[in-house]
Simulated assay, not measured.
Amino acid sequence: MTKDQIFDRITYLIREQLHKPDLVITQTTSLHDDLGVDSIALMEFVISMEDEFNLEIPDEDVEDLECMGDMLNYLVGRLN
């Protein structure tokens, strides 16, 4: 899976979770500031990504993920 494919997939997941299919998301989009994701929504998103990519994301790793680019780079590192 390419980096662009991974990004497309995670942006799809967050749009679905937030029920905002037209939401514009870039790699600099902040999970908290721009998307308004609270800790519960973040954990739901992480669970969706774990299911989608068939991996386990430790809680301590989630703490370092502030924007969609962080999430993308983390997943690229874990999947490749």
Rank of each mutant, 00 (worst) to 15 (best):
65 L>Y: 08
5 Q>M: 09
59 D>A: 11
1 M>T: 13
24 V>H: 11
11 T>F: 05
80 N>A: 14
16 E>D: 10
25 I>H: 07
3 K>D: 15
18 L>T: 10
32 H>T: 13
45 F>I: 08
40 I>K: 08
23 L>G: 05
39 S>F: 11
38 D>K: 13
20 K>R: 14
55 L>C: 10
6 I>K: 01
37 V>P: 00
46 V>L: 01
27 Q>M: 08
24 V>R: 12
11 T>Y: 04
10 I>A: 08
8 D>H: 09
10 I>E: 10
13 L>F: 02
56 E>L: 02
52 E>R: 09
66 E>L: 07
63 E>K: 06
53 F>T: 08
22 D>G: 05
67 C>A: 05
20 K>N: 09
26 T>I: 05
20 K>F: 05
33 D>E: 12
31 L>V: 07
12 Y>D: 08
7 F>T: 02
42 L>H: 12
1 M>D: 09
58 P>Y: 05
44 E>Q: 07
9 R>M: 08
30 S>R: 06
6 I>T: 01
23 L>S: 07
41 A>C: 04
29 T>H: 10
31 L>I: 11
2 T>H: 12
35 L>Y: 05
16 E>Y: 03
53 F>W: 14
11 T>Q: 09
29 T>P: 09
25 I>G: 04
67 C>K: 06
39 S>T: 13
31 L>H: 06
30 S>P: 00
76 V>Q: 04
69 G>S: 14
78 R>W: 00
72 L>V: 14
70 D>S: 13
25 I>V: 13
10 I>F: 12
48 S>H: 05
7 F>P: 01
57 I>H: 00
15 R>C: 09
53 F>Q: 10
32 H>A: 15
49 M>D: 02
75 L>S: 10
54 N>I: 02
50 E>I: 08
56 E>T: 06
80 N>S: 14
22 D>F: 12
20 K>M: 12
32 H>R: 15
77 G>S: 14
